[in-house]
Amino acid sequence: MKNLIKEFTKGIIKENPTFVLILGLCPTLAVSVSVANGIGMGIAATFVLLGSSLIVSLVRDFIPDKIRIPCYIVIIATFVTIAEFCMKAYSPVLDRALGIYVPLIVVNCIVLGRAEAFACKNNFSRSFFDGLGMGVGFTLALILISAIREFLGSGQILGHTLIKGFEPVFVFGMPSGALLVIGLLLGFFNILKNRKS
């Protein structure tokens, strides 16, 4: 049990997919304009990660080594399709906001990376918690980035105006703002890490 908790918590800080592994930056850069988008993307990716890690770890002994990547892609695409249709049915606004980036979870490096690096070598309970931890870590990173960008870029968080008279810094709503925020946060976390060691 202790091991499982460790598999879960490592994805949040020690091996955070966005800030430590630097994986899945494309959706991070693209959808982190607002917190709502960030949470939606995070939940969708977490669902896909959970499902794919679980199934890959269950069928890892049957998959021939040479064609393992196509097999993973098929498994991942299944879960992405489920997530996409659910989103279309229950939250069409979010679906429109995220657009092409939901289907693109299929090629998200975090999902494929965990399947290739972890799920194909570990049993299903460990893979499940690993996927959950990575998904939560990814979601938290997205929320952090998108909160900074939404606040600076439009003066709002989740659509609520925080400070009256705040002049929005438009650049943070643009792609260049995403790169700036991610770069500065990466630097900040590296400083924290260096101070610690």
Partner: peptide, 8 residues
């Protein structure tokens, strides 16, 4: 350029 993009 930052100011130009932020407060045109």
């Amino acid at each position: 350029v930052f100011l130009m993009a932020s407060w045109p």
